[in-house]
Amino acid sequence: MRDITVEKITDSVKKLCMDATRFIGDDVLSSLKVAQEGEKWPIAKDILADLITNYEIAASENLPMCQDTGMVYCEVEIGQEVHIVGGTLEKAINDGVALGYTEGYLRKSVVSDPIERINTKNNTPAVITYKIVEGENLKITVAPKGFGSENMSQLKMLKPSDGLEGVKEFVLKVVKEAGPNPCPPIVVGVGIGGTFDRVALLAKQAAIRNVDSFNSKPYYEKLERELLESVNALGIGPQGFGGKTTALKVNIEIFPTHIAGLPVAVNINCHAARHKSVVL
């Protein structure tokens, strides 16, 4: 058994919230630079240059890179040998979110009830998923998710007969319908398989995976490359003004599914694809 205190968890989550909203990932920044070099459409090239400048300003002045500092999606991997001491894990995480958002000059965008819509004033609660794993470590990932892109996400329960073609068609349909709304260039998170609920989670995990990573199965790595090419052939471009760079990456996550089903979900992320992790 290894003890981890709630104070340590709260402090870590606070820092992750601040860092994820201020410091762009190296993977995204490199990808944007490559895209900027490769763009031939003038307006697209200019926009990508402005985005790079924006990320540089945010990092150097400790400012939020985007005003939509998101709703926090938090993924926790808990080693079986870990013992949380001093309180509950969920409260420790939400306390960290509250501190990060109030002390970090981040926007509070969460309302307590979807119909009544009263702001909770500290951006809590986070949407938390837990996974029990081997070992005595605690890994926390914080992904502040903006809703410009979240609102453009979709899920569909396809028929097994729709097959791979059906999946490809659905992904392209979602990106096309989203058009300029989710702040292209986007990161496209695709979940395939599982159940209605699991496929949405897979899409989220795909949307926050690094843009320089690939699915470990060669078949899906190939599909990621192929879908990226198809998405970028749509011509939507940065901000929807036309160009080659509609997406920086398509990431796919899969799970076994039922003989009668082919669930597919597309979770769109903006060009920042914010996420930071820590292992305690």
Partner: peptide, 19 residues
């Protein structure tokens, strides 16, 4: 726009367009 809170020493927070 719905800006982030203004940091001390600044005139305004971060403020890009919303959809």
């Amino acid at each position: 726009v719905g800006p982030t809170p203004t940091k001390p020493g600044y005139a305004f927070g971060s403020g890009g367009p919303t959809t």
